[in-house]
Simulated scan of single mutants.
Amino acid sequence: MKLMDFILADKHRYSSEPTGFWKIYWSYEGFRFTVWLRICQETRKKKITKYTIFPIAKLVYKHYKYKFGYDIPYDRDIGPGLLIFHIGGVVFSPKSCGKNVTISQNTTVGMTVHEGIKEFPILGDNVYLAPGSAVIGGVKVGNNVAIGTNAVLTKSAPDNSVIVGIPGKVISYNGAQEYINNPYE
């Protein structure tokens, strides 16, 4: 996918209506941050943009990172359709994640270190992270998974599961479809 395809997929998650780009950009802080995250992801790869556009994009990205409280590295493999609800407390550092991931406030997706080796989570498509949820370590989260409020997931989760509690446990296989609004196809 190209840069603009990723940005438009992310925009679609915020509003499936034929709303203008700039209206969504100025209405949703998460989208504003995501635009600059995507620009950094793309411009750091090519030699000509790495030394021209990337430094400026990185400054804007860092500004929004600290302003909105989103700690999402631009060097991660993040699929299209990223949606960030609300400002604040987001630490999101998976090894990779699929399309249509929804991140709520005070959410952590981060690494652990086992025997000197860093292990990062891998998230599938259509994953919903409820407020306060945490996914820690080298776990694999399947497709269409909902992780409930304040749940702490330290073991892999199968497709279509709903996870709650500390430690996170599967309570059903109803999946995340009711929480994934305007999925990008």
Rank of each mutant, 00 (worst) to 15 (best):
E119A: 12
D125R: 02
V139R: 01
E185S: 13
K45E: 11
P55L: 06
Y61A: 12
P121D: 09
E17W: 03
P73Y: 05
H114R: 12
A130Q: 07
D5E: 15
D159P: 05
V60W: 07
Y173V: 03
Y184Q: 05
K11G: 06
G30I: 08
Y173E: 13
L83Y: 14
M4V: 11
G138R: 00
G168Y: 11
S172G: 03
G81D: 03
N182R: 08
V162T: 06
S172E: 02
I78W: 05
V91F: 01
Y25C: 01
T107M: 13
Q105F: 12
F85P: 01
S27E: 14
G148I: 04
Y14H: 02
K155D: 10
I147C: 00
I122K: 15
Q41H: 15
Y14M: 00
L82M: 14
V152E: 06
V91P: 00
D125I: 03
L37S: 02
T107S: 11
I180S: 11
E178D: 14
G137L: 06
F85V: 09
Y74M: 04
K47E: 08
V141I: 15
F33E: 09
T112C: 03
G110K: 10
K2H: 11
N143D: 15
D10S: 05
M4Y: 06
D5W: 01
N181F: 10
T34M: 00
D75R: 07
R13P: 06
Q41W: 15
D71F: 10
L8K: 15
F68L: 13
K155L: 07
R76P: 03
